[in-house]
Design a protein around this nucleic acid. Structure first.
Length: 214
DNA sequence: AAACGCTCCAACCGCATGTTC
DNA sequence: CGAACATGCGGTTGGAGCGTT
């Protein structure tokens, strides 16, 4: 692992079964949050950030393991086309999947599958710079529900806004002449559905159907 | 069997934003 | 109001595991 030397206070690298058990027990009793206090309270030699990440990406009961289904792939591809590399937003729309999972899956499978060039897209704010420059609006408030599902309030609103913007752009461009791709990083990948005027309606319906089938 | 290369994904880092005091 | 702390995000790294030579 990167910086394996560490500072002596915190362990790094893969989590052991025992560490997982300690963290899980702690979260069961005290709930999520106050991650920085966990090392002190439990004796875990992990930093708070590491504890949070381990819980969110692996130990949380809402996290789905295993291979991505065709439906999930399709959903991610569509959302990525709209949102770019805003993994938390995308993950918020893919039940049971975390931003890290979605990001890894995209980088290792989907980007190859689609032949996506690893360059910045114009309007999707995919780079960390551009998303950071967009300020608070780019932030997502993810909340784990009691049933283990994940909701995303700010993200929901933003997806809505992005879809509106995209839909508007589509209307503008399609009324002129040839359709223009939302992002310029998709070669040979043109999805007529995403460029329909009723883009948002279509996507929301797709998502509803998708979740109904889960 | 050993060496090598490649793939995949868990985990880390830096930074921005949000919250508390 | 501002500093300190907490949380969350996206990019990146590195090592385990697997296939190939």
């Amino acid at each position: 692992m990167k910086g394996a030397a560490g500072n002596g206070e915190h362990r790094r690298g893969l989590w052991t079964v025992e560490e997982d058990r300690i963290l899980t027990d702690h979260v069961r009793v005290h709930g999520k949050g106050k991650w920085n206090r966990i090392p002190k309270l439990t004796g875990l030699k992990r930093c708070g950030k590491s504890c949070r990440l381990r819980w969110v990406n692996y130990l949380s009961p809402g996290v789905k393991r295993g291979v991505f289904s065709e439906e999930e792939d399709d959903l991610i591809i569509r959302l990525h086309k709209l949102l770019g590399n805003r993994w938390s937003l995308i993950a918020g729309r893919v039940p049971g999947r975390t931003d890290n999972q979605v990001k890894n899956h995209w980088n290792t499978h989907l980007s190859k599958k689609l032949g996506v060039k690893q360059r910045k897209c114009k309007i999707n704010a995919s780079s960390s710079k551009s998303s950071k420059e967009s300020g608070a609006n780019s932030r997502t408030e993810l909340k784990s529900n009691d049933d283990g599902s994940i909701s995303c309030r700010k993200g929901e609103a933003e997806i809505h806004n992005v879809m509106e913007d995209s839909s508007e752009k589509v209307r503008e461009t399609t009324s002129l002449q040839d359709p223009v791709l939302i992002g310029d990083c998709y070669d040979n990948f043109w999805d007529p559905y995403l460029c329909a005027p009723n883009l948002m309606e279509f996507l929301d319906q797709s998502l509803d159907l998708f979740w109904d089938g889960m």
